[in-house]
């Protein structure tokens, strides 16, 4: 196997640990949000936290922050596609 050697993206242990801790805090936040009666905001709150967590995982654990432009654009396209699909689906629920 002749994988390209990665020179620049060895993330320090400290940084990884910080991300991990943030994820834990956000998980706690997810549970905390359910305790309050936020009405419609509840869904938005939960989704915001979830998206932030997913973003952190992708950026650091999956190295996307250090990858080249093309890969980032491709990921972006995939995410936008998914957002459109989910958006149109929610659109139905919203007006039902």
């Amino acid at each position: 196997m002749t994988a390209q050697p990665h020179e620049h993206n060895i993330i320090s242990f400290r940084k990884l640990a910080a991300v991990w801790a943030t994820l834990l805090v956000l998980t706690a936040a997810t549970i905390a949000v359910t305790r309050f009666d936020l009405g419609g905001l509840k869904v938005i709150g939960a989704l915001t936290i979830a998206c932030t967590k997913a973003g952190l995982v992708i950026a650091f654990f999956m190295h996307m922050k250090y990858e080249n432009r093309l890969l980032q654009i491709l990921l972006f396209v995939a995410v936008v596609t998914l957002a459109i699909f989910i958006g149109l689906t929610f659109f139905d629920v919203l007006y039902r």
Binding site: F85, L88, F91, D92, L94, R96
Partner: peptide
């Protein structure tokens, strides 16, 4: 064509706006 799937669901109880 990726954005038209709802035409299979007109009678499903989906919202009229959709």
């Amino acid at each position: 064509g990726s954005l038209v799937w709802g035409h299979h669901m007109f009678t499903s109880g989906m919202s009229d706006t959709a």
